[in-house]
Simulated scan of single mutants.
Amino acid sequence: MTGRRVACIGAGTVGSAWAVVFARAGYEVAVWDSVPETLSEFALPRVAQIARTLAEEMSTGEDAETVIARIRAATSLADAVDGVEAVQESVREELSVKRAVFDEIGEAAPPDALLMSSTSALPGSQFLTEVPNPERALVAHPVNPPSHIPLVELCGTGVTEEATFERARQLFLSARMEPVVLRKEIEGFLLNRLQYTMVNEAMHLVGEGYCTAEDIDRVLTSGLALRWASIGPFMTAHLNAREGFRGFVDQLGPMMKTMGREARTDYDWGPDLAESVHESVARILPVDSIPEAQAWRDGRILATRRMQAADHMPGRKKADPD
């Protein structure tokens, strides 16, 4: 035990995964949820399952039972945040709910504790600026499940201090996460703006009859994802031209701009198209098979991470921290 404590508020899929992240980093973790049954019937069993899987697939040298022993169910929100150095909130994605929860967190948590939200899209300035000492509050948006995917996006509220960003960075680095810092607040942050933009254009392509939903998924898994699992879109372009990114843009920049103008990221898809896509993917994977498929997906994520860690791109230099 390090004697350092973190609270996870909201014990659903994201909150329970966060608990394992912090426990694997040596923190004592208190988990609380407004529905007590969520803790006993979902969160604690899931914590144990995740910890045991990670001990086998991504070992830190500790056995799973040691990690599990660091996590406890709190009896109240005040009990959860008592004496902690950081709070990670993962409650329902609803502004009024988050405001109410942070009102309570702000009153009960130590005055210098980091206050962080897992919100997927809501700007932190809408619910984090009224807490006591708001300069210590920020968004720390993970990718679900954070126990398996290391990215976390740090976004301030306009009053968040630079020292808060650095404290959060160090916290997540100690937990083997990979934080990125947004320089300005924007709805959806980075990952979801990229993800939802692509999905909206995919809906356009399917909705206008260019292809099927299965075709879109195949374009990603058998095409883009094979490169993007190791390098991002800018580095992909850099490697696709002998002259690097500059050469890529010189050759294909006009085409990129044309397709950008023609893309329908604002495509007005409706419930009929959404239902058609659902039926298409559900024929391949029935809804009652989703839990089993999620476990398979998580295993593939860990296998990809092991592949990523196995070697490094020849000639690649470490990026500047700023």
Rank of each mutant, 00 (worst) to 15 (best):
R300N: 13
D268N: 13
M307V: 09
V287T: 12
D266S: 15
A303I: 01
D272Q: 14
A310V: 01
D272M: 05
A303M: 04
Y267S: 04
S276V: 02
R306I: 00
V277M: 14
Q308L: 06
A274K: 13
V281L: 08
L285A: 08
P291N: 00
V277N: 04
D272T: 12
D268V: 14
E292G: 11
H278G: 03
A274N: 07
E279S: 15
S280M: 01
V287F: 13
P271L: 14
D266R: 11
A310Q: 05
P291W: 05
L273S: 03
P286C: 02
I301L: 07
W269D: 09
R305Y: 12
V277E: 03
I301Y: 01
G270T: 05
Q294S: 12
E292V: 09
A295N: 06
Y267M: 08
W296V: 04
P291E: 04
D272F: 08
I284G: 04
H278D: 11
W269H: 15
S289Y: 07
P286I: 03
R300M: 13
L302V: 08
D268A: 15
P291K: 04
V281D: 01
S276C: 09
A310D: 07
S276P: 00
P286E: 05
M307K: 09
A282M: 02
A310S: 14
R283C: 02
R305K: 07
H278E: 11
A309T: 09
V277A: 03
M307W: 14
P286F: 03
R300F: 06
Y267E: 06
R283S: 12
T265Y: 10
Q294V: 15
Y267V: 09
W296L: 12
P291V: 00
R306S: 07
A282E: 06
L285R: 08
H278M: 11
D266G: 14
P286D: 05
D298S: 03
T265V: 11
